[in-house]
């Protein structure tokens, strides 16, 4: 979260990052730049080794346009940090590959692309995925006890706008040491 987390949502969405443009632009302009030059090897190593913040290489996300966006996204959500991706499915793929390798349980209905990734593609990599519906929540305890480490759901869901209690679901999953990821695209 940014230092401006005391502000309300609408204010955080406008004043959400601390980057200052060198030429005084009130917002960070587009840095259509693949790489960033340094005055010395020492300066380059400071950024590479994480001793100083700075831009470095766009594919790494170390680009002012991306860094400003991510700080704003984190502030809007009240989160410690945010990553931006080239699509929502790219974000989900990175999530599942990072945190879903011990198995994923998806609760309720989900976007068709998400269901295809979970039901057909991740199993090709040996990742166990379980799709349970909202009226099958009694299966969740057994799956968590079995070592599933990621619980994923949408709320509201597509297309029946079904809701899940995020806090209750997180309490249950965290008790088993599992993470919870929620797709909030719908609202």
């Amino acid at each position: 979260m940014t230092e401006d987390s005391r502000y309300r949502l609408a204010t955080r969405s406008i004043h959400g990052h601390r980057l200052r443009d060198a030429h005084g632009s009130p917002h960070i302009p587009v840095y259509d730049t693949t790489t960033f030059a340094f005055a010395s090897t020492a300066d380059l190593l400071d950024v590479v080794d994480g001793r100083k913040p700075g831009s470095f290489y766009t594919r790494y996300g170390l680009n002012p346009s991306i860094l400003a966006l991510e700080e704003t996204l984190a502030g809007i959500e009240g989160a410690e940090m945010a990553w931006a991706f080239c699509s929502g499915m790219a974000a989900e793929t990175a999530l599942f590959l990072t945190h879903g390798r011990e198995g994923v349980v998806c609760i309720g209905d989900a976007y068709g692309g998400t269901l295809e990734l979970l039901a057909q593609q991740l199993p090709l990599l040996g990742i166990k995925t379980h799709l349970i519906l909202g009226d099958e929540l009694d299966r969740l305890d057994a799956l968590l006890a079995d070592g599933i480490r990621l619980v994923f759901f949408e709320t509201p869901t597509n297309p029946t706008l079904a809701l899940f209690d995020i806090r209750a679901m997180a309490t249950k999953a965290h008790a088993h040491g599992a993470l919870v990821a929620v797709d909030n695209t719908f609202a």
């Binding site: 960070i28 302009p29 587009v30 840095y31 259509d32 730049t33 766009t58 594919r59 790494y60 996300g61 680009n63 346009s65 991306i66 400003a68 966006l69 990553w83 931006a84 991706f85 080239c86 699509s87 790219a90 974000a91 793929t93 990175a94 590959l97």
Partner: peptide, 14 residues
């Protein structure tokens, strides 16, 4: 994200 290459483009980020 880095090695999947699924970074947002700077123009899109802006």
């Amino acid at each position: 994200r880095k090695n999947l290459g699924s970074m947002i483009a700077p123009a899109t980020a802006s």
